[in-house]
Design a protein around this nucleic acid. Sequence first.
DNA 1: TAACAAAGTGTTATAATATAACATTTATTA
DNA 2: TAATAAATGTTATATTATAACACTTTGTTA
Lengths: 130, 130
Amino acid sequence: MSQAQILSKNQQIVLDIIEKAKGPLKAYSILFNVQKKGINAPQQIYRALDKLIEMGKIHKIESKNAFVACRSSNCEISKATAFSICESCEMVDEISDVKLSKYISSFNHKKGMKFKRFNLEFFGLCKKCK
Amino acid sequence: MSQAQILSKNQQIVLDIIEKAKGPLKAYSILFNVQKKGINAPQQIYRALDKLIEMGKIHKIESKNAFVACRSSNCEISKATAFSICESCEMVDEISDVKLSKYISSFNHKKGMKFKRFNLEFFGLCKKCK
DNA sequence: TAACAAAGTGTTATAATATAACATTTATTA
DNA sequence: TAATAAATGTTATATTATAACACTTTGTTA
Ligand SMILES: [Zn+2]
Ligand SMILES: [Zn+2]
Ligand SMILES: [Zn+2]
Ligand SMILES: [Zn+2]
């Protein structure tokens, strides 16, 4: 059984902000939000972000250069991530669909490449924006 | 029948370079490669890139901020893109697998979002790097 | 517990990626 | 040919991300 990760001070501060946010956050917007807490430099943010990603606590939305908290408890440390992204309101929602994930994970590339992980981003209009 | 797109001068220059490249190219590396051709500013590159993406001639590899030529003739203007990416040598290969693409396209999000397009990036080690 | 190693922090500087804004030119079409 | 749309050239600036170095805290192990 893997014990609950203990986070460092900066990691906890950054994670708290990302978890409280309604949508994806950009690194510099996180930075501006924590300057009162004594974090002054981008490095401090990026280092925390890197570790949090490694731990699977957050994910990077590549198409937006932004970060969201992981909402799926069974998200196997980010080996198989999928997101739906609203092109109008910027809302991002993590998709955890075992069938979809299994199907994609089992996809075999003709050219003999063995995949370790994948990231899938869907784009469209969310219910509200339709 | 859609007639062959006629490209503007800058669009053609940028496309040529991307098509000749063996791997994904970054915007500034394209820029450095075309300065002899009279293109001097990032804007000129990014504008061409934007149009080429719109036309489906190239794709952006989001996880790398880099661009590759579209190799799949039936790539329906980038509504459904998939790539395999080698984490060691940076090689990128466009996957055109109708079954995979159909399966993912038909995925229905529970929260009522209708998807217009998706982008899937696989990561691993290619044959050579394994 | 002293010594060492590993992980985290703080800081300054800079690199890399991308867009804003505006003037001008070229191509298209009415 | 006049009006419109698309593309270009240019300068400046915004945004995202990493390098490098000195120091501190935490964990491990002799
Ligand atoms: Zn997750
Ligand atoms: Zn929306
Ligand atoms: Zn394609
Ligand atoms: Zn490789």
